[in-house]
Design a protein around this nucleic acid. Structure first.
Lengths: 242, 242
DNA sequence: TTCACTCATTGATCTGCATCAATGACTGTC
DNA sequence: GACAGTCATTGATGCAGATCAATGAGTGAA
């Protein structure tokens, strides 16, 4: 078995296909999708998948591990744009410009699927369900980005952290993982950067939530002890029911 | 001539078609697009195009005037999500949920094109260029939203206003309107709400920019006197060259 | 013209979070 | 197992921008 084969698991066999692949595809259609997906060996922690300035050629999906996307400004400052968990697609912001404006880096050893964009485009013109899936996926990203904008422009530090944790909790639940006990794949700095807060603020709020018995934090391990109160703090319970 | 015909201008004849319609379509293809577009009489100031909770059935493009999109939270507070000028499409965040989560309201008397989504989907499967156009359009919205996120999470009030004005200036220029002298279609409250600032802050910064000879403000009329210094203040000149 | 209402501006005060500073805990390396 | 480097926590201080308050300017209705 060659190196590159170790990581090859077909879309049919992938535990995440409910998230990635539209449900309504026929077996044949899934095979077509499957055939366009390139799987290479996992990306090591801190290695980039693509960098700002790279030519755009593919979209990517996380299979296992976690990815952060970010941009770097003229002063060399990093700005975290998003975090992606297994089953989530990233790189979609580059379609319009044909060049990556953001960079993507592995937060831990991460397996990814690479989907060459021109082949995806062709295929989606033929397979109607795939096209609507793509439209929904892109639209979903827009809606999520707009939710984040609302957070950044209106919410307090505590509300942001609360929402952030509930959002992660919900995404882990979708992946059939525990919504109450999970590991934060990113550093506190990244969380602060993403939410527009100083690291110190993130840290302080974590300890405060811990004191109030809402959260149990041990380094990157987090346990949500009181989901309801966390919702109250986040000021946005309903948003995480879907 | 019936009422509804007054506003009917084909895509071919529309001065905005360079912005809306992909350049590479054949004449026949443009006619197909044209045939799917519904044009109704202008929306009066403060009237909504759609509201949160409405079933999603169409995307919309602004022909003339201006639209703001916003959501309303449980406390009845409005949160401005975006502003749309002639040639820009809105409503794309609703594709993924099949329901509008945001509302759209006319900031002044506004003519819009309505594009029934299911017909657009069908057509885009047939017309390859239209499909890639749609992908690019959606991706563009994602990239723009991410730019805004960066602003909201990292920039000072002055930088936000600077960027906002430069962004508008650039969009007017794309429409072959003056990039230096234009009218703000939205109220100060809306600007503040959108940028995550208090109205008072917006007002103060406008007067400060005026004192420093960078801007001339008279109500909603704005003239950019010193584009370079505005760029410096915005800390993002390059972003508006494209 | 006057009244009612909304919107914009300006000043005074308050506060949430950034910033600065220092220490502790953890990780990998030789 | 000592050292360097990164990351997290906690405390002290300062400031950008929110909030509160008041006035003025613009708009439409009767």
């Amino acid at each position: 078995m060659s190196d590159s084969h170790k990581y090859v698991v077909s879309c049919q066999a992938c535990s995440l296909n409910a998230l990635c692949v539209p449900h309504s595809l026929t077996e044949e259609e899934i095979e077509l999708v499957d055939a366009t997906v390139k799987r290479s060996k996992p990306v090591q922690r801190n290695k980039t998948v693509f960098e700002s300035g790279d030519a755009f050629s593919s979209l990517y999906a996380v299979r296992s591990g976690a990815i952060k996307t970010y941009s770097v400004d003229e002063d060399g400052e990093e700005h975290v744009i998003g975090f992606y968990l297994p089953g989530e697609m990233f790189g979609m912001d580059a379609i319009s410009r044909n060049v990556h404006i953001s960079s993507a880096k592995a937060l831990e050893t991460t397996a990814i699927c690479e989907i060459p964009y021109n082949r995806l485009e062709e295929l989606s013109a033929k397979v109607h369900n795939l096209q609507s899936h793509m439209y929904r996926l892109l639209s979903r990203e827009i809606a999520d980005d707009q939710d984040l904008q609302l957070m950044l422009s209106k919410k307090t530090a505590e509300e942001r952290i609360g929402n952030f944790l509930l959002n992660l909790s919900h995404r882990y639940q979708m992946r059939r993982l525990s919504p109450t006990t999970f590991r934060l794949p990113m550093a506190r700095t990244d969380i602060g950067n993403y939410l527009g807060l100083a690291v110190e603020t993130v840290s302080r709020i974590f300890t405060r939530l811990q004191k109030n018995q809402i959260l149990k934090v041990d380094g990157k391990e987090v346990e949500i002890l009181d989901h309801n109160r966390l919702c109250e703090i986040a000021n946005a319970c309903h948003e995480h029911k879907h």
